[in-house]
Computed example of a mutant assay.
Amino acid sequence: MYAEAKMIYDIFLDHKANYIEPLKQQALQYQNEKQASIYTLIAQQYENIHDLEQAHHYHSLAKQALHR
């Protein structure tokens, strides 16, 4: 639980982007709400590094995961 809380802190408060690749791999293991939350974390990291095209792509994937 600590590792997940630290990751969320790093992404949203420290604006880090070092979890993109591990989260992409993790997203493949889940569906629906869990997958959507992972895609949202990925999208936020792309926003942190100002890659808005990839951020938009992962926000779209998150929405699709919620509607399956």
Rank of each mutant, 00 (worst) to 15 (best):
S37T: 06
I42T: 03
Q54G: 03
A27V: 00
Q45W: 04
K24Q: 13
A36W: 03
N48E: 11
N32H: 14
E53H: 04
D10V: 00
L66Y: 06
Q35Y: 06
H67W: 08
L41H: 05
Y39L: 02
A55E: 04
K24G: 04
L41E: 04
K34I: 11
E4A: 15
H59T: 09
A36M: 01
H57C: 00
Q44T: 09
A65C: 07
Y58G: 02
K63V: 06
M7C: 06
A36V: 01
Q29A: 12
Y2P: 08
Y19F: 14
K6W: 04
Y30V: 04
Y2G: 09
Y19V: 10
N32T: 10
K16L: 13
K34Y: 00
Y30F: 15
Q35S: 09
A17D: 15
I8L: 14
Q44P: 04
L13F: 14
Q29Y: 08
E4Y: 14
Y9P: 07
K24F: 01
Q29M: 13
A36G: 05
H15N: 14
I42Y: 02
I8Y: 02
I38D: 01
Y19E: 02
T40H: 09
S37K: 11
Q44K: 15
K63A: 13
L61D: 01
A62D: 01
A17W: 11
K16H: 11
Q64H: 10
L61Y: 01
E33H: 12
F12C: 05
L13A: 12
D14I: 06
E33Q: 13
K63P: 07
R68W: 03
M1I: 10
H15K: 15
F12R: 07
L61N: 02
L41Q: 09
E33T: 10
E21A: 11
E33W: 08
E47L: 15
M7D: 04
A65F: 04
H57L: 10
S60T: 09
S37M: 12
H56G: 05
E47G: 05
Y46E: 08
Q26G: 04
Q44V: 09
L52Y: 15
E21C: 00
D14Y: 10
A17R: 06
Y46K: 01
D51C: 05
I11T: 05
A55Q: 10
F12A: 05
Y30G: 04
N18K: 12
E21H: 08
I49H: 00
Y46N: 07
H15E: 13
I20M: 13
M7K: 15
Y2L: 13
H67G: 01
S60K: 01
I11H: 04
Q45Y: 09
K34S: 02
A5N: 09
E33S: 10
I49E: 13
Q64T: 12
Q31P: 03
Q64P: 02
I42H: 06
H59G: 02
L23A: 07
H15D: 08
K24A: 08
Q25A: 12
Y9E: 15
L66S: 07
I8R: 10
N48Q: 11
I11M: 05
Y58D: 05
A17C: 11
